[in-house]
């Protein structure tokens, strides 16, 4: 990545999470599975979700797809999809981050500084268990596979992104 002229797809997929926080690892695991598929035309990064570093990562990429575990009160495994370039992320959903300056804040700071990639798609996977541990809840395991498929499908249609 990084050699394409501007306006051509410069795909960046970021999986956010903590591998030692049970379902919080959902984004990391999804990213790992996606990496095998998109390594030739883009970057896939596993990340802790520290906001300033995210801003630096996505500054020159498009499209950008982020996958993170969320908690909104929905059923475990529920998948949400947002285009953060269009409107702010519901910050309360992304609060269970170890970072006070996390994804939702990074999106808004990028917007304030006019550095937001377009589009910036965020997939949220509703977590069930965020206690210390390395096991996934069954509903999350299933949801990860679904998110991987949806992201790959979205990327296969990525040409329109270059026109946004």
């Amino acid at each position: 990545m990084g050699n394409e002229a501007p306006r051509k797809p410069n795909i960046l997929v970021i999986g956010i999470g903590n591998a030692y926080r049970s379902d919080d690892a959902a984004g990391l695991i999804a990213a790992r599975r996606i990496r095998e598929q998109v390594s030739k035309c883009g970057s896939v990064i596993e990340h802790t979700g520290e906001g300033a570093a995210l801003m630096e990562l996505w500054k020159d990429a498009e499209p950008v797809i982020v996958i993170d575990a969320v908690r909104s009160g929905a059923a475990p495994g529920t998948i949400s999809r947002f285009d953060a370039a269009l409107r702010p992320l519901p910050a309360s959903m992304f609060r269970d981050s170890t970072h006070v300056f996390g994804l939702a804040e990074a999106v808004e700071l990028s917007r304030a500084l006019k550095q937001l990639p377009r589009p910036l798609i965020v997939y949220g996977v509703e977590a069930q268990n965020l206690e210390a541990g390395t096991n996934l809840s069954p509903a999350i395991e299933f949801a990860i596979q679904t998110v991987v498929e949806r992201v790959l499908q979205e990327l296969s249609q990525s040409t329109p992104y270059s026109q946004t």
Partner: peptide, 15 residues
Amino acid sequence: QDVIQLAKDHPAVVQ
């Protein structure tokens, strides 16, 4: 309230 509001008034500081 936060750095995002700070950035709107003082983008160079945040940069």
